[in-house]
Structure formats: structure tokens, C-alpha cells
Design a protein around this nucleic acid. Structure first.
Lengths: 185, 185
DNA sequence: CCACACATGTAATGTGTTACATGATTAT
DNA sequence: ATAATCATGTAACACATTACATGTGTGG
């Protein structure tokens, strides 16, 4: 069901074609929230149109169809946003690997964590830079670009991941040192 | 494919039955990393056994079968852990909602964020409590337990979410106040 | 004229959820 | 006895990925 609302949400921001939406997923949503391929998006747009939640507002070259959200679609999206489930769907292969870290010996665990610490730091820097640029461009106190909220969340999440990776690396070293100190244990 | 490695990882920690594994998913993995129901776990255990990656080491009451990982299974798991993909599978309905927050007006956005701040605080308290209890029980410097890394990551994630939700609520108020101060803008 | 990006679609297969189905053991 | 928990399994359906398939417009 989430795909349906992801599409409605993107179309609530601005009209787009299936092709556009496919790229939006790749650029914005895939890394943090949700992913979908065009083979899933096109049929779903068809269903949304059949249900009256979106409509074709323009047809262009190469069979391009631009969709826009309808009033009914906005109502439906709002209702979904205001009624969250008790338990959210979470599927995060990266975090899964973190959880299984203790199945590795300390050397392997470090080999997994080092790139994590590195890449989260790099991602962090990229995000912070593009955020600073956006901040500098827009005059202060203007319209709440809610994209600002999301960016901040991404920033904090990567910071947390980075800090945690460093903490875990340190922890592994400590346990190893303790083990070396009492070889009989 | 991830389910397969999640199971191998849990069995690498200790032998377990399908029933045990189902509860481990519910308690430990579901909220952060991955979820699976028993209807998916039992067939997958069968496949893993057929592939020689796990084996039945005991049969108990009520048809209970306890599985353990094999040497081949450990090799397979290690290879998966040490070879991460370029792009991780991520599906996070909560973050998706954050992305779509900008489709709501400020009042609705606050209505979404308030329970986030509340529930993350509650979750945080629960986690911290059970962590403190575990810390007090186990002697320091002992074996690096699987649960310890998981708990720490959970703790930090919820702390991050909580702090962010408060920050976001504050930010929305600020922008609204600024708007009210210059009604012509 | 040719490569690349644009643009859409379906079929086969794999993964995941919900519902259906059954029965044993344990604690009260 | 009886309710709760333990314990496993399959079938139907929904969702998601990969592969197959086709054609158009644009820039070099």
C-alpha cells in the first residue's frame, strides 16, 4: 500500500509522468525510505487513475502522460498521513548486517565497520554541504521548505550511524584487549 | 535473499527452532532491520537445511525441531557479511511519511509529529531500562553479546528520532510565528 | 546516422502477508 | 477442564524484481 501513497505524495508536490516518478524514487526515496521500479509504477498509476485519485493532465511526445493528484487523491493522502499504523514497515539490509556483526570474529567485524564509519562520514559531509547551500540561497524566515525537515533527519541519522560505528569499533577493541589480558578465560 | 542470512545470523548466535526464530524477529529485528512471519520462516529453514547450511540438532515436544548452523552455513554467512552491495535495500514507512510531511499544512504536520515525539520517548525509556538491567547483571568486559550492539543502536536511533521530532515541531512554530508577524508576506 | 536519453508496457519469477488449519503441553 | 502458549505447516493473495519488449525525440 505504501507505494500508492508515495506516488500520491510525490504528485501532491508537482505533476509528473511515470518516467519522472521513477527517477524521483531513484534520487530521493531509494536511499532512505522506499524504492520502486518503473514496472511497478506504471501499473500503479493506472490503478490510481481508475480510482480517481490522480488524473492525466497532459500528453506529450513519445507517449508521455503527465499525471496530477486530484482533490480526492489529496483527501486520501491526508487521511493516510494522519492515521499511522501501530507498527511501521521497516526493512533495512544495512542495519540487518550491523545486527549480525557479532557472528564475525573481531578482525572481520572491524573490516565491516570501517567502511561504515567512512561512508557515513562522507554521506554526512555531502548532506551538510547541500543543506548549507540551500540555507544560504533562501532568505531566512521564508516558507518552511519541509524538505528542510527531511534533510535534517537524514543528517542526524547519518551522524548517529557514524557515531555508533565508531563506538562499536572501540567496543570490539576493548573486548579483545580484555580477552588478551586473561588468556585462560 | 536477506531473510536467508538473517536466519543464518540468528542461528550463528545460538541454535533455535522456527518458533524461537519467529519471536526473535518480533522482538529484536522487526522494528529496526527486517521482519518475517512464521509462514515464511519455516519453509526457508527447510531450504537452508536442504542446502546444508543448517541442520536439525534436536527434536522435542510438540514436534519442535531445533536447528543449528553448519560450518558451510558459517562460511556462507561470512561471505555475505563481507561483501555488501553498492545499494542497500531500504524500506521505511516512517521515513516515507517524513518525506511526505510537506504535503500537509502546519497544523496537520504537528499532529503527525507530536505522537512521534511521545512514542520515541517512551521507547527510549524502555530500552534504556532493559539495557541498564542487562549491564548490571553481566560482569564487565565479558563476551560481546549480540543484543548489546542492537540495543545500543536502537537507543541511539530513538534518541535521534525524539530530538529531531522536537526540533521539527519547534521549527514549524517558528515559521508560523514569522508568517503571522507579516500577514502581507 | 547513430548513440543516448526519453518513455511506456507486460511476463515470469521471487518474496512477503494474511488466512486457514491442526494439534500438544503447561499452568491455573 | 480450560485457557494460554507452544509448535508447525500450507494456500491464496499481494507486492516487488528481473527480464523481455518496443518505439520516439534530440544532440552530436
Amino acid at each position: 500500500m505504501s507505494l500508492r501513497y508515495a506516488l500520491l505524495g510525490l504528485l501532491a508536490d508537482e505533476p509528473a509522468s511515470g518516467y519522472d516518478l521513477t527517477r524521483k524514487f531513484e534520487r530521493a526515496l531509494q536511499r532512505y525510505a522506499w524504492h520502486a521500479q518503473h514496472s511497478q509504477i506504471y501499473p500503479e498509476l493506472g490503478k490510481l487513475a481508475a480510482d480517481g485519485l490522480v488524473e492525466v493532465i497532459a500528453e506529450g511526445a513519445r507517449g508521455r502522460r503527465t499525471y496530477a493528484i486530484t482533490e480526492q487523491g489529496r483527501t486520501e493522502l491526508r487521511s493516510w498521513m494522519l492515521n499511522p499504523p501501530d507498527v511501521f514497515v521497516v526493512r533495512h539490509e544495512f542495519v540487518l548486517r550491523l545486527f549480525l556483526l557479532s557472528t564475525l570474529d573481531p578482525e572481520d567485524a572491524r573490516a565491516v565497520l570501517r567502511p561504515v564509519a567512512q561512508e557515513s562520514a562522507r554521506e554526512l559531509a555531502t548532506l551538510r554541504e547541500s543543506l548549507d547551500r540551500a540555507e544560504a540561497t533562501a532568505p531566512p524566515g521564508t516558507e518552511l521548505a519541509l524538505g528542510r525537515l527531511v534533510a535534517e533527519y537524514g543528517l542526524r541519522s547519518f551522524q548517529t550511524m557514524h557515531d555508533w560505528a565508531l563506538w562499536a569499533l572501540d567496543r570490539i577493541d576493548q573486548v579483545e584487549a580484555a580477552k588478551a589480558a586473561r588468556p585462560a578465560g
